[in-house]
Design a protein around this nucleic acid. Structure first.
Lengths: 215, 215
DNA sequence: AATAAAGTCAACAGCGCTGTTGAAATTATT
DNA sequence: AATAATTTCAACAGCGCTGTTGACTTTATT
């Protein structure tokens, strides 16, 4: 039994939490920009305006810090897609998520290029689901789910090449709407299938936890 | 003046050249797979079945080894495209190059994701040229050069996700032909413009020489 | 068989990143 | 003003990668 049963929160928790948040934000930017492997604790701390040792008070190891970022971004990606029930909703959701959150796009691409089998399998599952969702729609002849997938991932890649400033001020909104419109015209052509889409969201999760990282 | 004016090549040049080639081939695989930054001299030498110090007899620094690989691959990319004069030739050339040479696709993507401004600018110039080449063709309404570019880069990305074995044995040939056919139908739709294409090839060169590397 | 080119091996210093430690300096809260 | 939480700082050992060096072994060629 602890010696302070109803231990009142002592003092000075404000800065602690604020700094943890700063570290996570900084790490998020760096991870998205350069990939999870390329991020160092020094970089993150410096970007957050903090000392390197402070970071180690919040996260035991570098890998745990990166894992926290990956987990958070995985959740955001999941939340942003929100159970699409048709190919139309899927296109809407993905173009919206990736146009609003440049970091999510870049991170996904870094994970895909990392050579890890997990993101690769996620992608394959995603294409398979896409194929099911679009199979019933009256798509343009010769244009199939795979080409749709290529357009989507190609668009994410090209968009994520822009710098943060370009990305924010650019008319991504209109471009997204236009892309969505054209994709729907190409692939859904009138009728939408109302198929359900059970575990697509799970398939989109980036892989979590890197290398060894004990407790 | 050297003391041996007509110095005859002494002895044992065969193994030397062979090992240099082995090192370049090993480095090529590793650079394409994991990106130029992630390659170590130990990895390359081990993959080539040679000692680490042997590598340093062929290349003064790690960066020079990597630079040699990048230069060679840049030349191959250039040679593979061979001055396309129309969007049709361009589509043919790029799909062929990237389907035949998985390493070129992966390297290009690594460079694009690296954050270096040079590959990014190359890509933008490429899209600009593509826009010019397709501007006169009777493309499907709403489908423009940018979407064509997205399909191309998306296809390269997805194809380069496959492992070497999958890539080699998969029916990439037929898939390439099909992709080329569909792209032409989507974007060129009957008439091809015979515009000339001056310096597209130069614009496709990946950036060469990394960091410091004296003499 | 002689010989010189080339490869192997072990060791070294240097560097940057990781993760830890202990002491000193801040600072929010009471 | 007192105090405890928190941050900072300098230093350290460990590790992996870079390049270098010197001694040695192997081997193609003559």
């Amino acid at each position: 039994m602890p010696d302070t049963p109803h231990a009142p929160p002592r003092r000075r928790r404000r800065d602690f939490d604020r700094n943890r948040e700063r570290l996570l934000v900084a790490a998020r930017h760096l991870v998205a920009e350069h990939g999870p492997e390329a991020v160092t604790v020094s970089d993150v701390a410096h970007q957050a305006g903090l000392n390197r040792t402070t970071a180690y008070q919040h996260f035991r190891t570098r890998d745990q810090l990166v894992a926290a970022v990956l987990e958070a971004m995985g959740d955001e990606l999941q939340a942003g897609l929100e159970e699409p029930r048709s190919a139309a909703e899927l296109i809407d959701g993905m173009t919206r998520v990736f146009s609003e959150q440049r970091e999510l796009a870049r991170l996904s691409l870094h994970l895909l290029m990392s050579g890890d089998p997990l993101p690769r399998r996620s992608w394959e599952r995603f294409v398979a689901h896409l194929r099911k969702l679009t199979s019933g729609s009256r798509a343009q002849e010769g244009v199939d789910a795979e080409m749709l997938a290529h357009i989507l991932v190609g668009t994410w890649l090209v968009w994520s090449l822009r710098s943060r400033a370009e990305y924010d001020e650019a008319e991504v909104g209109p471009a997204t709407e236009r892309l969505t419109r054209e994709l729907k015209r190409l692939f859904l052509y009138g009728l939408f299938r109302r198929d359900r889409m059970p575990d697509l969201v799970a398939s989109l999760q980036p892989h979590r936890g890197r290398k060894k990282a004990e407790s």
